[in-house]
Structures are given as C-alpha cells and as structure tokens.
Design a binder for these strands. Structure first.
Lengths: 251, 251
DNA sequence: CGGTATTTTGATTTAGCTCAACAGACGTGG
DNA sequence: CCACGTCTGTTGAGCTAAATCAAAATACCG
C-alpha cells in the first residue's frame, strides 16, 4: 500500500535502479520468467542465456530508432519500454507499453530489414538482447519456444486489429476509458487512490495511445475525475472506480 | 487484356469456378505455392496435404463467424476471402482481403479459443483447412514452416500497426488512395481502363477498409474519377493513373 | 420492364482538432 | 528554502473534416 501526505505529489514509486541491479542472477531469473522460455529446463535456459547481452537505459532514453537496421531481438527485464511510431508532423502513435518479460525489436527480419517503430525506455530499464541469427537458432533448437513466440505474435496481431476497431467505431472518451482499463490491468497496483498505474503517464501519452489530441485527453480525464472515476495528477493516474470506468468503456 | 463494349458494364472476369475445379491436383499444386510450404519437398508436401480437407464457397457465403469456436486453420486456394469485424451497430471493419496462397483462421489457439473475426468468400472460392492440432504437428515437424508462419504473422502485425498510423494521422482521401494502391498491387491486372482490381469492390467495402462512411468513399472516388486518376463503376475500380494516385496517397 | 441494390449528391450537424492563453507542479540554483 | 524558469495540464473559442440524414439517379437482374 503506497501512501503520500500531499495529494498532488506523484504517488509513483521511482525505482531508482542502477546498472548494477542487472546482475547475472537477476537476468537469469527474469529470463526464466519470460513466457516463451518457461518451457525450458534450467540447463537449457543457462545455455540460451549465454547468447544474450544486457544493457541499461535511463528513463526517456531511446533504445533504437525507426528505420535503424534491425539486428536484435530484445527482452525487457526491468522497467518499462514504449514502442512509438513517430510521424513527420510530430504526431506520435504510441503502439505499446511493455513490462518485464515482454519482447520487442525485430523478429521476422532474416537479415537486412529495419525496425518499424522507435523504442524508448519509459522508466529506467534493463534490457537483454540477442542477435537475430542466434535467436533463430534457438527457435530451431526448441520448437516449443518457437510455438510460444508465434502465439504471442498472433495475440499481438489480434490486439492490434481490436485497436483498429476501436479507432474507427468508438468516440475518444470510450477509447480512453478502454486504454485506462488495460493499463490498470497490466501496470496497476493498489494504493490509497485506488488502482494506481505504476508508470509516468502524461496526457500526451494517453492521447497518443488513443489516437486523439492531448487537449481532448485532458478534457476527458477532467470529466472522469469530476465523476470520481479516476484520481489523477501530473504524470500519474489511478482508477478510483473500476466499475464506472468499465461502464464508460462500454459500447 | 480485358475489353468490354459498354463502358459501364462490369469489366471483371467472373471466374465461374465450380466445385469440380478443386481437384486434388489443383489443391496440391496450390499448396506448394503457399509461401510457408515452399521449403518442403514434393514428398513432404504430399504428406502434409493428406491432413487438409477442402471446401468450396459461393461468393458472399460466410466461412465462419466471429466467436465461433476456432478449430481450423485455412488456406485460400482459389478466389478471394475477406476478413471482417462486425460491430453491434452494423458498422463493419474490413480487416483484410486474401488471395490464393494466404492463410487465415486460427493460429495461436491451442484449443478452445474463438475466431476474432468473420470470414466470408468474396468471390467463389476454394479453401483448404487443417485441424489446429495437425497444424501444430506440422510446425513441430518442419521448423522451416514454423519460421515462415512466424515471419508472415509478424509481417501482418506490422501492416496492422501501419494501418493504425494511417487511421490516426491521414485524412480519408489519402487513406483511400493508399488502399487503392495496395489493392491494385495485390489484385490488379492490366485492362483497357488501366490497372483493374480483379474483385467485386463496392463503395461500402472501400469505406470499411478506410474506416470511413460509404458516402465519403463515394465522394472521394468521384473526385478521383473527375481528375482522371481512376475509372470506376458499380462494384469495380481500375487505376487509370498510378502516378497521380501515388501522389494523392503521399503524406 | 419493374424491382432491388448501389451509388451519387445535397444539406445539416457535430466530435474533436487547432490555436491560444493561463495555471499548477516540479526542479534547480542561489 | 525561496524565486524563477520550464514543463505539464487545463480551459476556452472557433473551425473543419467527415458523419449522418435524406432523396434522387443509375446499374443490374430476372
């Protein structure tokens, strides 16, 4: 249970992780928690782990840019990473926010393709990476891993199509409500304000996820707060009334 | 080169395929053309083919409904199939249009999941299907096939995210222009009208692909026709000036 | 030739964008 | 610890692309 004296001070836990937290032990442990490596034995896991190298990023730091040559597949070990499509006119699309255990980067590229999005550490983050060639070798060696990766990718495709549906059929308010629900599900922790989304989450980011403008996102959040559905401040959001939020997302 | 006397009569070739066209020979030949089976030898292909059964659908016929229990993976052998998200208010989202060699249906479901979209034969179509369990066995037996399926799925995820970008950043006209380009690329054949999209393609379908209304799609198509960019009639579209269409899709 | 489905076109409405100004929070350095 | 500058968020006022509503016109089908 997180508590704060001053209502408006950010209630987020700032995990001031330093580079030294990414020890081999932590990395191995986290790698075993990655969904598609769960089928591996400790022995196999240790073998696979050798192929990975680790890196640490400060919050806000870019991990790779769109159109960079895609050579690595990465796994979030600690912190959170966001995937962004940046457009020419400075309008961003926030595609996904990843938490430990999720992978990103290149998959299909047999070699010389480029990343289709930019990856940025949202909080301080520890990330493992493996060369594509090595990863393909792992997939060949362990069909169960390949299967799991396929399942996850197919799942992401389904979510992406669901998002298209929401963009074309739902008004901004319902889209935001849906996004808040998903974020609370994924990053939420109980707090005195309700289910607190453990991420620095600005209006602009919400807007970029919902495909709307920061102003519209702000207005909608104000309305939600007035109605007692959320409690929110600068860079943070907590769900005060999940029931009513679900209703607001209702179609 | 397709020619027609009357300008307004549909210039589409109506492939009046009958059930008997889906012979074993044709099926085997087509299966070999499927991207993810290309790595297999004739021997292996014949073996895999045994697991498939075939079905024929009339144009407009539904192959499966959203929320049906997902048990089969299917491959288009002849004709075209469209994948649609139907919403409560009758607003459809056209997710994809598939041509021979492409697969659809369930992938990840290890068992008791449901289809996330509805599949409908757009023209008369011949479709092969394989039980999920059998397909997983094929993937396990032939890692190269699993790899190819993963590549294709990752590619579809990228397209889907690209579509999200277009929906949130581009005006309807540019989205339609982009869609016409993609369709012409995939289904186009040269004709007296220019590159003719070999599909029955209504304004409503275009609208459902672009996430706009049929009226808006109609207005945009009229404008394109006035400018000499396309030639179009009831249920058909041909690209008269690919250059200018590309400009219209420009961002 | 009548009936139906598709497309076009017009008129009106509106959600949400943009522009603009302001206010609150945060951090930093004095 | 306070003053100041810089972000982030709030709020208001118009504006616009596109939705919706409503006919009419055109193409296809038997």
């Amino acid at each position: 249970m997180i508590t704060m004296a001053n209502k408006r001070t950010t209630p987020l836990e700032h995990s001031n992780i330093k580079g030294h937290h990414c020890t081999v032990d932590v990395r191995l442990e986290k790698l075993g928690m990655v969904p598609f490596f769960q089928s591996l034995s400790d022995e196999e896991l240790r073998e696979v782990h050798k192929k990975f190298s680790s890196a640490h990023y400060a919050g806000g730091e870019t991990i790779y840019f769109r159109d960079d040559k895609a050579t690595l597949l990465r796994v979030v070990v600690h912190g959170s990473v966001k995937l962004v499509h940046q457009t020419l006119e400075g309008k961003d699309i926030l595609l996904d926010m990843l938490k430990p255990g999720e992978f990103f980067g290149s998959l299909s590229a047999l070699g010389h393709e480029a990343y289709t999005e930019t990856a940025e550490a949202q909080t301080a983050a520890c990330v493992l990476s493996i060369g594509l060639r090595d990863f393909r070798a792992v997939l060949n060696a362990y069909p169960s891993v390949a299967m799991a990766v396929l399942d996850i990718t197919a799942g992401r495709l389904a979510s992406s199509q669901e998002k298209i549906r929401q963009l074309t059929t739902l008004p901004a308010e319902k889209r935001i409500a849906g996004i808040l629900r998903a974020l609370a599900e994924k990053f939420g922790e109980e707090s005195e304000y309700g289910r607190l989304i453990q991420l620095p989450l600005s209006r602009k980011e919400l807007a970029d996820m919902a495909g709307t403008s920061a102003e519209t996102a702000s207005r909608i959040m104000s309305r939600f707060q007035q109605n007692g559905i959320v409690k929110t401040g600068r860079q943070w959001v907590a769900i005060a009334d999940g029931r009513r939020l679900a209703e607001a997302a209702e179609e």
